[in-house]
Simulated scan of single mutants.
Amino acid sequence: MEIKNIIKLATLSLLLQLSACGLSEIDNYDGPNAAIHGGIYDIETKELIQQDIVRGTQIEYVEHGYANPQTQYMVVKNDGTYQNKLMFANKYTIRAVRGNFVPPPSQEITVSSNTEHNFEVLPYVRIKNANISQQGNKIVATFGLDKTVENSLQRIGLFAHTEINVGEPLHKVSVQQTINGAVDEANTYRLEIDLAQHTTSLMNGKPYYFRIGALMNAGEAKFNYAPAIRITIQ
C-alpha cells in the first residue's frame, strides 16, 4: 500500500475516534453577554482613589452557580476606575483586595448588560495640597498628609516616568524618604529630585510625569497617591 494511502487511512481513523468521543462537536456555548464598570471611591470625600496598575489593587470576583467556581480578577486603572466587558449575566461575589485602603467586606451583586458597581472605601492616608514644579535644576514636591487610620507612616516618595502610570512599581527616577512614625498633619512634606544627577533619565526638553506617594504600615497596603503631573524639563 502506498504511503499516501496509509496516511489517509490513519487520518480517517483519527477523525472517527474524535467523533465518537464527541470532540468534533461545534462549540455552541454562548459568549459573554454582560459588562461591569465602576470605580474605587473615598467613602468620605467621594473622590476616586489613585492607584498603581502594576502590583496594585485587584477586584476579585466569583461567579455563582458552579460547584467549584474559580476566582477571577480585574485590574484597577491608574485613576481608580475599572471595566470588564467580558462578563456573563449572573450573580457574583465581588470584593476589592490588596489595595491602598482598609479592606471592605465581600458583596453579592447581579451583573447584567452594563452594570455599574462602585466601591466606597477608606484610604489609608490622603495626600492634600500637592504641588510639583521645576525650580531651577530641581523638581520639587510639597504636600500635606491627612491621617485616616492609626497606623504609622512608613515612607513617602516622588516618582518620575514617561508614562502617566508612574508610581513606586513603575518609575525611571524616584526619591523616597523613610519615616516609620506618626503622620504629622500640620507638616508640609518636601521631596526633591536633583536633575543634574539624572541627566540620562530625565532629559532636557522632554516631558515626564511626576507623582507623589505615601505608604502606611498596614498589612498589604500599597502607596496612596496624588494625581500625576506632566512637566517638560527645561
Rank of each mutant, 00 (worst) to 15 (best):
K85N: 15
P69H: 12
T57G: 00
T57D: 00
V62C: 07
Q58A: 02
S112E: 15
I36D: 05
E47W: 03
Y124C: 10
G38K: 01
H37N: 13
G99Y: 00
P103M: 02
G65L: 04
Q70V: 13
P123V: 11
K91F: 09
T81Y: 05
H117N: 12
Y124K: 10
G80T: 02
N84E: 15
Q72P: 00
V76Q: 02
Y73V: 07
Q72A: 11
I36G: 01
R126P: 08
P105K: 07
N114R: 14
K77I: 00
I127C: 05
G99I: 04
H64D: 15
K77M: 02
Y124W: 12
V111K: 07
P104V: 04
N84F: 03
A89I: 08
R95F: 01
E120C: 07
E60F: 01
Y73N: 10
I59Y: 03
N68Q: 13
Q51T: 04
I109K: 06
I94H: 02
T71L: 13
Y92K: 03
E60H: 06
E108H: 09
Q51H: 03
Q107R: 13
D42P: 03
R95C: 09
A96G: 12
R98W: 08
L122H: 05
E47I: 00
S106K: 09
Y73C: 11
Y82K: 03
P123N: 08
Y124M: 13
V75E: 08
E116I: 13
F88N: 12
N33E: 10
A67F: 14
V54S: 04
A89G: 15
D79G: 06
E120P: 00
V125C: 11
E108R: 07
